[in-house]
Amino acid sequence: MNKKIIVLGSTGSIGTQTLDVARWRGYRVTGLVAGRNIELLLRQVHEFKPEVVFATSAIDAANLPSGTRLAASAAEVAAADADVVVAAIPGLAGLEPVRAAVRAGHLVALANKESMVAAGDLLWQEASEYGADFIPVDSEHSAIFQCLVGEPRENAAELLLTASGGPFREGPEDLSRVTPEQALAHPRWNMGPKVSIDSATLMNKGLEVLEARALFGVGLEQIKVVIHPQSYVHSMVRFKDGQIKAQLGPTDMRLAIQYALSYPARPPTPLANEPLPTVLNFAEPDSERFPALSLAYEAGRVGGVAPVVLNAANEVAVNAFLNRQIPFTAITKIVAKLLEEAPALELTWENLYAADTWTRARAEELI
């Protein structure tokens, strides 16, 4: 089958790896969305010749091949004809295209965790209404999904999300002096800047906890995080009888991407088989050194728009750190302050966007 896919965020880490998978499988790419990397986007457009394309930076339509039209928005591309939409635009900027894909009735291969964190209940309501569905792309959620295949959900007692521990797992003791370059140097995964910084603070794992709750319909108390430096066990499920299923594999996101695009098939890949690691270590996360994880659980317990505030405050703070406006340790301090000040609002689409706007403005004031 010549499967048709749309890639939202095609020039980022997940997007470029998705296009690798499209080359392996011969998938037809019908839509592409990118940000500012117009040069790479145009190379992708001329290779895959999608029907529709959009970028947040200006594109000269004269540079597009015959048969490719320029859309007015990312949401327009997300709603175009496809079998699967890969949602890989980072941050809450990816929410509207995800929602458009859902309202078009698409299967969404979700790599944009912030959409599910901020609007999980709302997105599932619309997915039910429009006949859409989600399959996770994040390696941890893909692992949980794979462990649950064939298992009644009520048999799952705990979801165990693994974390590498990031670049600062073993030092330095004083994190206030670390630089963006140090924080971006993830020991195991090759990711974009936002996700890399989130991994260094462990906020990425906190967001993944909230995403797992929304994706799999379990309580926060059923989701645990374990530090696993080798990153070979991508996540696990402990069942009510005490047995554990784990999904293991190399640290190559193309495997999780291909699984999402080809599920339930497991076609071969051109990747070489890696040897099994000789040691697998697991440890508890250090919540004092990395308070982001506790903040995410707190936002999940408060509910309403608190996860929206958590996400927005973190996005602004991470950007400020990357721009050398604040120290590394100020990221979680800003998030904690805004969670304290967050308005107590139920989650609706209107309240979501109001809370997001308020949080970003207030975070900028604090910075």
Rank of each mutant, 00 (worst) to 15 (best):
G26T: 11
G31N: 05
L338C: 01
L295C: 06
E158W: 15
L352A: 05
E288T: 07
V85E: 02
E158I: 14
N190P: 04
S128I: 14
V77T: 03
A212T: 04
R43W: 13
T357N: 11
T329V: 06
Q222C: 12
N37R: 14
R153H: 09
E274C: 12
P291F: 02
L338F: 00
Y27G: 02
T329A: 09
R266K: 09
G219N: 13
C147D: 08
M253Y: 11
I135G: 08
E284P: 03
L202F: 13
P172E: 06
L95K: 13
G304I: 07
D252L: 04
L255E: 12
R153L: 06
R43K: 13
A156H: 07
K194A: 04
S142D: 08
W358T: 03
M191Y: 05
M1Q: 10
I223G: 02
E154T: 12
K4N: 13
A143T: 06
L64G: 08
Q17T: 10
E173M: 09
L338K: 01
K113A: 11
G67V: 13
T348P: 12
P193Y: 06
P187A: 01
A61S: 13
W358F: 08
R238G: 02
L366H: 04
T18L: 07
L322T: 05
G166V: 01
P90D: 01
P267Y: 04
T348Y: 05
A119S: 11
V335I: 14
E76R: 00
V77H: 05
W124F: 15
F290M: 02
T359H: 05
L160C: 05
E154Q: 14
D20G: 15
L8E: 00
L160V: 06
P97A: 10
V309L: 05
M203T: 03
A71S: 14
F54P: 07
R362T: 14
F290G: 00
D286I: 02
V102L: 03
W358M: 06
I6M: 07
S10G: 12
I144K: 05
V45E: 05
R103D: 01
L366C: 08
D83V: 07
E129N: 08
R23C: 11
E288D: 14
Q44R: 04
A119N: 01
V117M: 08
F145N: 03
K245D: 13
R69W: 13
A320C: 09
A317E: 05
S66D: 14
R188E: 09
D83E: 11
S10W: 12
G166Q: 08
S235N: 09
T329H: 04
E298G: 08
R254F: 09
L92R: 02
P327G: 09
A74K: 10
S10H: 08
I334E: 00
E76S: 06
R28E: 14
D81L: 06
C147R: 06
A283S: 12
L248D: 08
G249A: 06
Q258K: 15
L310E: 02
A75V: 07
E140H: 00
A118T: 11
